[in-house]
Design a protein around this nucleic acid. Sequence first.
DNA 1: CACTTTTTTGACCGTTTCTTGACCTTTATG
DNA 2: CATAAAGGTCAAGAAACGGTCAAAAAAGTG
Lengths: 224, 224
Amino acid sequence: MAYRILIADDEPMLRKLLAEHLEGEGYAVNTAGDGGEVMGLLGTRPDIILLDINMPGVDGLRLCRDIRDAVSCPIIFLTARISEEDKVMGLRAGGDDYITKPFSLSELSARIEAHLRRDERQRREESIISSRGLIVDLRGRRVLWEGQEIRFTKREYEVIEFLIMNRNQIFDRERMYELIWGLDAGGDSRVIKEYVRKIRQKLLEATGKEFIETVWGMGYRWKR
Amino acid sequence: MAYRILIADDEPMLRKLLAEHLEGEGYAVNTAGDGGEVMGLLGTRPDIILLDINMPGVDGLRLCRDIRDAVSCPIIFLTARISEEDKVMGLRAGGDDYITKPFSLSELSARIEAHLRRDERQRREESIISSRGLIVDLRGRRVLWEGQEIRFTKREYEVIEFLIMNRNQIFDRERMYELIWGLDAGGDSRVIKEYVRKIRQKLLEATGKEFIETVWGMGYRWKR
DNA sequence: CACTTTTTTGACCGTTTCTTGACCTTTATG
DNA sequence: CATAAAGGTCAAGAAACGGTCAAAAAAGTG
């Protein structure tokens, strides 16, 4: 699906120019000429907003703050002249970047891409979702249920990650211990029992569901 | 346009694994199995090079130097084991980071991103970053809150810049130390504790907010 | 050089997490 | 049903971690 860009500028000509250019680059574009329209178009869930802060009759900074309260996508200011102060003010209001008019279209594209890329990377962070809505964010090393984080310690997390990455496989404690703690860990594989207990407890408390299954005599397995 | 990564490793399986993973993350990937191929592929202008320094029949350090003479992108060593000596030698030869096998793919991605971000900033001449109203002026190496400068020392600033540029990623102290102080800094990563404390104190005093989060057992993270 | 500022180190303490061992419960099997 | 083996629970001590402070070491400055 194409990225969606919301352009907010009072000059119809510029709006059109930008819209055409960006559509030509494959983006889905919406345009707005005043604050009301902008707020109304937030429902389109834009991936990026280009906002002229000098629209007549509109307090750009105020608008920026309102947008920020409603959505979290990057906001790039378009502005005629920018003084250090404006820059600072804009960023303070929650903008992410600014670009001064006149700007080249390729410059604009470059900035948009940079922001999208940054977000994209974060979004794509290879989160694995277990069958029942439990989200394990590998990069962030956390576990989420209905948007809420379920806190786990380092070891607990490592065990979860291991099981969920190898779901449907059964591991006995010895093997899990070697694979998670490392071959050279000189400890006792019975710790696994304890970790499974702690994990089960926290997960049950938070979700009301069972995720780790015991296969008698064989080991544990993450239920798909 | 996607970032381009050049992978140099003699093991075809590993090459394939890495290539597939990184392509899945949206990178353009080239692979090379020996020194000649590597040099030949420099023409693709990679943004980052992953280099196994222990390729049989290849003097990895020599190769690194040759690469360095030709291009300036970051070079990350992939290496089985790394001794202090190896580390120093590799760095002398022009490497920027190392990662010891076996490593997790998410770990690798995180490192790649950290390097790319650093570069991206320079390429785009991005000069200002903001986070929840806090403004970091990269050019001026200053931090502002509501127009007022919050004074930080050189090191303090470097730590802030690093964290904010890699916001939402967790870094343990060891890694932060290596990436900020440099791999060849022979010191003790516990300094990080102290800097985090100082930074938190100054930021809290000036803004009343918490920006650096502690993730127990895992490290620190800049709250977005 | 004397003085200030910054960086680094070491020690201490409270907290969290990890691990262990003892004991209890369930399951398979003769 | 008795028994052994596997799994589950609990509490407590050990170890690791993070926060804080003060002071030493190093770097910068007039």
